[in-house]
Every structure is written in C-alpha cells, then in structure tokens.
Amino acid sequence: MVAAASMAARNRPQAEDLRLPVHGTARMNNRTRELIAFTFLRLSALIVVLPIALIICLLVIQGAPALSLKFLFSYPSEGMRAGGIFPAIVGTIYLVLGTIVFAVPLGVMAAVYLSEYARPNALTRLIRLSIVNLAGVPSIVYGLFGFGIFVLLLGFGVSLLAGSLTLALLVLPVVIVAAEEALLSVPQTFREASLALGATKWQTIRRVVLPNALPGVITGVVLAIARAAGETAPILFTVAAFYLPRLPRSIFDQAMALPYHLFIMSTQVPNAPPGIQWGTALALLIIVLGMNLIAAVIRARFRRRRPW
C-alpha cells in the first residue's frame, strides 16, 4: 500500500507535505519483502516434498531386497518370524473383491440418482450431506459399526463377509463422487435425443449415459480398491486374523490382510525381522500406489479422448 501511495505521489507534481519515505527505498523494501516471502514459500514446498521422497525411498531401499517371489508366495513360518506374506496378499485380494461387489452397484446407482433423478430440494441436500459425512467418519468408527452390526447383530461373525461390508461402506463415498462426476460429464443433448426418440428414462441411462460415463466410473472403482486395500482400522475386529494356516475357504472365514499384517509385525511380534516388515510395507505401498496411478491414467485418457 505504501508503494501504491508513493506511485500516486510521483504522478502529482507536489509532494512536500506527503511525509512518505522516498519513493526509491519504499519500492526496494517491498521487493525484498517479496523475495523473503517467496523464499519461505519455496522452502515450505521443499519441507513437504522431502519427507514424501524420504518415505518412498526408504521403503524401496529397505523393502526391495525382501520382495522375492518366494516372499510373495509362501506362508509365514516360525511364529511369523520367517517365511512370506502370501495369505495376507490373498486375504487382501478377497477383501477388495468383496468390497467392490457391494460398493460399486450401490454407489453407481446412488450416483445415477443424484445425476439423473434428483431435484434441487431438501432431500437431495440431505443426501449430499450424508455422503460428506460418510466420507468423514473415522475409520475406527466404521470398524465399531461393522463389528456391532455385521459381526454381532447379523451374526456373520468375524469374516470376509463382515469385513467386506464394512469396507464397502467406507469406500461408498469414493465411488459415488467419481461416478456422479462421470455421469454429469455426459452432455445433456444425448439424453434429449434419446428421449425424443421415445426411449424410457432407464433405456436412456443404460444405453447412452452409463456407457459413456464408464471410464470415470472405473476411475472411482480403482480408487475405491486402493482405499480398501490400505485400510486397517475397519478390519481390526471384523475380519482380520493374526495367523491362519490356510487360505479362507468361504465368506464366513476370517482372513489375513496386508495392512493388518504390517501392523502386527511391527508392533506385536517381538524381534520380527526388519526385512519382513519393510517387505510387507513395500508390497502394500506398491499395490495402493499402483492402483492410484492406474486411476490417474484412466482419468487423464478419459478427459483427452472424449469422442464428443
């Protein structure tokens, strides 16, 4: 503001009673202030990037040596102090599949409701508020809910079924938001053309809207997979098992899972070999980041290659 005033003063020929600092130094002060500020900003970006890079580098350096095929495909042995993580990987895969089966149809249909049927009224606002809230519920509370309803009340016991249902609820907002965004991106004119030809609303959705929203919906599904694979708290008391001698055979069986395995190995197993811990962590990271990468690629190609 001082700079502004002094510039105005320069344009007016008299400045004697404007007790302002000399125009030149005022400008220099502000420029230096800007330089200092920008340096701090650049520094803060660095402060943020460094830990991220550190985390990833550490995981790769410490974990990669452990990631042999033997590690990935064998069972833990000697009280978890040796062997591999195969059952945890399989358990995670089963859980993720179960989560998708429950979350995707429901989430996509809810998104269809929001984009094709909902009017701007109180009910719609309530639904959107509910979605925001579901997204904000702490993951441990989902665990509690899953335990109370699926494990106990409905009697599924600590099982893949209970765990999948709990995780499905957790990732539901992810699916809904991505699917709705994809549906809204389909131009309205296609819906009009279809309805004008005498199609019913559902025919229009099924034949024109959904197929063209598919890449966006898939992005949401992949993001949901990434999320479900990495969560620990919701599965703590709904499905996770410390050690199982064999793979789960039905949806009512317990299962091991990668995030839980990492947690146990690093906090509950005394003298657990660091190689196994870092290897598990790296395996989990690769799966989760890999999924996120796939989602980002799909999203980018969808945006670029739209036929309309």
Partner: peptide
Amino acid sequence: LRKRVGMVFQRANPFPMSVFDNVAYGLRI
C-alpha cells in the same frame, strides 16, 4: 407419443456410436 412425433435438433447430436448403431437405436429400444 415420441415414437409418433420425432424431433431433429438445432445442433446435430448423433450418439457416440457407429452410424449403423445410431440409426438402429430407435429400432432397438
């Protein structure tokens, strides 16, 4: 009604499908 009264829009809006599928759309639904 919309089967008996057809509409052509100001901006051509073919579906993102093949030429054949566009024309066949009405027949299929």
